[in-house]
Simulated assay, not measured.
Amino acid sequence: MRTSPLHATLRYAAIVLCGLIMAAPLLYMISGSLQSAAEVSAFPKPLLPETPIWQNFVDAWNFLTPQVIANTFIFSLGIVGLQLLLSLPAAFALAKIPFKWSAAVMATLIVPMFIPGNLTLIPLFIVTFQLGWLNTYAGLIIPMAAQCAFAILLFRQFFATMPAGLIEAARIDGASWGRVLTSIALPLAKPALATFCSISFLTAWNMYIWPQVIAPNPANRVINVALAPLAGGENSMISPAVGLAGAVISMLPVLIVFIVFQKWYLKGIAGTGLE
Rank of each mutant, 00 (worst) to 15 (best):
A60T: 07
S102N: 15
V111E: 02
F114L: 10
S198H: 05
P46T: 09
G139R: 04
V105I: 13
F159E: 05
G232C: 00
N56M: 08
C18K: 08
L274A: 14
I249W: 07
P5A: 07
T108E: 03
W177A: 06
L153G: 03
P89Y: 09
L20V: 15
A138N: 09
A145W: 09
I142R: 07
A169I: 03
L85K: 13
N220F: 09
P123N: 04
V213E: 04
G174P: 13
A241S: 13
V225I: 06
P143C: 09
V260A: 02
T195C: 13
E39W: 00
T65W: 09
L154D: 05
L48V: 15
N56I: 04
F261K: 01
N118D: 03
E234A: 12
P49S: 02
E234G: 00
L153H: 04
K96L: 10
F57M: 15
L186Q: 04
W264F: 09
M22R: 08
A91R: 12
F201C: 00
T195V: 10
P5I: 04
C197H: 01
P116D: 08
M207L: 14
P46A: 08
M251F: 14
A145T: 14
L153D: 04
S31E: 06
S183L: 09
A38W: 04
G165M: 01
M237Y: 12
L134G: 01
S76G: 11
G232P: 03
A270T: 09
A103T: 12
C197A: 10
K96S: 06
A104E: 06
L20G: 11
N206R: 11
P66G: 01
S41T: 03
P52N: 02
V111N: 02
I223Y: 04
G273L: 13
S36P: 00
I141W: 11
V68M: 09
G268L: 11
E234C: 00
T108I: 13
R171G: 11
A151Q: 13
S200K: 03
V222F: 03
K190I: 07
T3S: 02
I53Y: 05
W264P: 00
P187G: 01
I97G: 03
T203G: 14
S236H: 05
S4M: 01
L17A: 13
A231H: 05
L20W: 07
Q262L: 06
L10M: 12
G117V: 04
A138L: 14
N235Y: 09
I30C: 00
S31C: 05
A245L: 15
I97V: 13
F155E: 05
L47D: 01
L252Q: 13
L186R: 05
I209V: 13
I69Q: 12
T120Y: 05
T182A: 14
L20N: 05
L86D: 09
A95W: 11
I53K: 06
M207V: 03
N56K: 06
S239Q: 00
A70Q: 14
S41A: 15
N217T: 06
L186S: 03
L85H: 10
C148H: 15
Q35W: 02
A70W: 11
L255P: 02
L188R: 08
P253D: 01
A60P: 04
G19N: 10
S250P: 04
W177M: 10
K190V: 08
R156E: 10
L202S: 15
A138C: 06
P49G: 00
Q35D: 05
Q212F: 13
A24G: 04
I126T: 07
L48P: 01
T3Q: 10
L154N: 08
G271I: 15
S76P: 09
